[in-house]
């Protein structure tokens, strides 16, 4: 393991218990994990494994029942609501399976939102948004509504929105889940490019095997535990059999 400064997210013995009527559901039974700065980490697991729960906790969207998660050396569970909102706004970028663009806002308005929440004036925010939309290849779609562009383009808008505040971490929940194979590959490639360009850490929850080959670390979650953690080179992905090429 490298120096402590290279660890951006630390999860220690994270558990989560839901109360479902009289029954206690143990979604997470103690997961510990270090995420290195600048790595591409994929979380894998069948539905009901606790994968989404863990993913949401790492993203500061949900609180653990016990254990702790720290981001950049700061414990998420000690923060108040407004500090958490600041972390979500400045340090994290979120990408969703169903894109989650605001349907009544144009591409540039959607992308400018995180900047506006960070306190920038709408005019400045739009300029920054236009710039990053250009970067993801959508400079010609600035004033289109989400319903007027394709799924892949919607996900590009969402990626631009996640990046516009230059966060250190991108959390992507099944980012290729609603896309066809080819468009999915393009999105993975774009994420990999952005990771290289901005030095961001990417964490995805996925079943998409294409994403694994782009990953530096893969965590398999099963029954609320980290079943296996593998660094690049320790896992094999037979991606070549899908369409004859790998994505790295």
């Amino acid at each position: 393991m490298k120096a402590a400064d290279d660890i951006i997210i630390t999860a220690r013995d994270v558990t989560k218990v839901y109360q479902l009527g009289a029954e206690e559901v143990h979604a997470l039974r103690g997961i510990s994990l270090d995420v290195r700065r600048g790595e591409y980490l994929s979380i894998l697991g069948p539905s009901g494994s606790g994968k989404s729960t863990f993913f949401n906790m790492v993203g500061g969207l949900d609180r653990p029942t016990s254990g702790g998660i720290s981001v950049d050396g700061c414990n998420l569970q000690d923060l108040n609501q407004k500090q958490l909102a600041w972390i979500r706004c400045h340090k994290m970028g979120y990408i969703f399976q169903s894109f989650n663009l605001i349907q009544t806002m144009t591409a540039v308005e959607n992308v400018s939102l995180p900047r506006i929440f960070a306190g920038e004036s709408p005019a400045k925010a739009r300029a920054a948004a236009a710039e990053i939309l250009e970067m993801v290849g959508l400079g010609h779609r600035l004033t289109h509504l989400p319903s007027q562009v394709s799924g892949g383009q919607q996900q590009r808008i969402a990626i631009a929105r996640a990046l516009v505040n230059r966060p250190g971490i991108i959390l992507a929940d099944e980012p290729t889940g609603n896309l066809d194979l080819h468009t999915g590959e393009e999105i993975i490639q774009l994420l990999a490019d952005m990771k290289k360009q901005f030095g961001i850490t990417i964490i995805t929850a996925t079943h998409d095997m294409k994403m694994l080959s782009a990953s530096d670390t893969v965590v398999w979650i099963k029954d609320g535990r980290a079943d296996r953690i593998a660094r690049k080179g320790e896992f094999e992905v037979a991606i070549g059999t899908i369409d004859g090429k790998t994505i790295a």
Binding site: A4, D5, R37, G38, D72, G73, C74, N75, D78, L79, N80, K82, Q83, A85, W86, I87, C89, L113, I116, F117, G119, S121, P122, R166, P167, G168, F198, G199, I200
Partner: peptide, 27 residues
């Protein structure tokens, strides 16, 4: 965003509220 030193919780600022005028523009 790269290579930031560890920070304590007190160093995390609280998210500030956007103004009514901006809220109106967004809405």
């Amino acid at each position: 965003m790269n290579a930031q030193p560890s920070i304590t919780n007190a160093a995390i600022p609280e998210q500030r509220q956007v103004s009514w005028a901006v809220s109106f523009q967004v809405s």
